[in-house]
Amino acid sequence: MENYLLCCDWGTSFFRLQLVHIADYTILDQEVSPDGIAATYNAWKLDAAGEAVPRSQFFRRQLHAQITRLAGRIGMSLDHVPVVISGMASSSIGMEDVPYATLPFALNGSRASVCYFDSQVEFPHDVYLVSGVRSGEDVMRGEETQLIGVTPLLGTVDRKLDDAIFICPGTHSKHMYVSQRQLVDFHTYMTGEVFNLLATHSILKNSVEVEHLTASLAIDPEAFKLGVREADACAILNRLFTIRTNQLFGKLSSQENALYLSGLLIGTELKPLRKPEKQELVLCCGSRLSPFYTLAIEELGLAERTTILSPELVDKAAIVGQVMLFQNHQKPEKEVVK
């Protein structure tokens, strides 16, 4: 099984394990579950009260259960296949608290912070635990792995991207500034989290309907585009309250209001990218958010400067990044953790 790698993305609220053929990044099968880092950490605290199990051992036990399920489904042993883990598993509530890498961060992954765990009798897998990156005032975990994988996949893109801003939307969107094949700065925008908080826990929750939002955008995008434009022209805290009055005065339906809210927040996030005007933009977006960010980029007049990567390529980038990290950080003896 030396030609295979187990690639694990272990986030706060989700878990994904994929068996990957190293040579061509083909995914043979995967195991997905809601057993994210937060739930696993809470389970360890309850378990540790009775058994005093070391945290890293408990996490490996949970990981082994997922590997066993994957092996059973594909009908082959996965013993001794190495595991690369990125995401929140390297945080203070993860498998091991691993220090962040610092800037500038080389896009070949050579300066990544990786902690190596040797295989054990009860867990016959070498583990490569990838930490995130920090700046003077910001942090990321996982997006840097995706960025490492994206850059070699850009060979089919005509634009020169040695000096570019990579946009990675999500709950906490990242704008990653790349120069001379290095990540030199990045900024986090709480766009997705703020949308969810306002739509479910604020005075606006009865004024918006968030179900079928993507379908609503495809049918009638005008409310979304209005939100993007007004984010450009007005104070965001004032415009947010108009979502309430839009409903009270019958100006927009609840579905239109949800699109308007999305447009306001995404427009506010993207506005700073209009300067510097000469810098290329690269949108690295999954299928769920791609229509929203693509339309917002067009509405803000950024389309000519923007390379929009397909969601399929973005999904593949995380796998490529993990394979590259595995190849660049094999068994760093001074960091061995037993």
Rank of each mutant, 00 (worst) to 15 (best):
V139A: 05
G50V: 04
T145K: 03
G75V: 03
Y128G: 07
E230S: 09
Q62G: 05
S90F: 07
I203N: 02
T242V: 08
K278F: 11
L309F: 06
T245Y: 04
V320L: 14
A215P: 04
F195D: 01
R16Y: 02
T40N: 07
E209V: 03
T145D: 05
K205M: 10
L313E: 09
E312K: 08
L248M: 14
T171P: 05
Y293K: 01
T306H: 03
Q30R: 15
Y189T: 13
P124R: 10
K331R: 15
S92G: 10
I243K: 05
Q180V: 05
L302D: 03
F14I: 01
L46Y: 08
Q30T: 09
A23V: 10
G142S: 08
V53R: 13
R181E: 15
W44N: 09
S91L: 12
L46R: 14
L240S: 00
D79S: 10
G227R: 00
R305S: 11
N108G: 03
L281K: 01
P272A: 12
G170I: 14
E299R: 03
T145H: 02
R134V: 08
A233D: 14
L325M: 14
R239H: 10
L70K: 00
Y116D: 00
V150P: 01
L313I: 15
V121C: 13
I203A: 12
P152F: 02
V98Q: 00
C115T: 15
N246R: 03
I243L: 09
E312Q: 10
L28E: 13
Y25G: 06
M88T: 12
Y293D: 02
S179C: 13
R274K: 15
A106T: 09
E277L: 11
L204V: 03
E143F: 01
K331W: 07
Y293H: 07
Y41V: 11
S33H: 02
P124E: 03
A218M: 11
T306G: 01
V20F: 00
H21Q: 12
T268I: 04
F117T: 11
V314N: 05
Q120F: 11
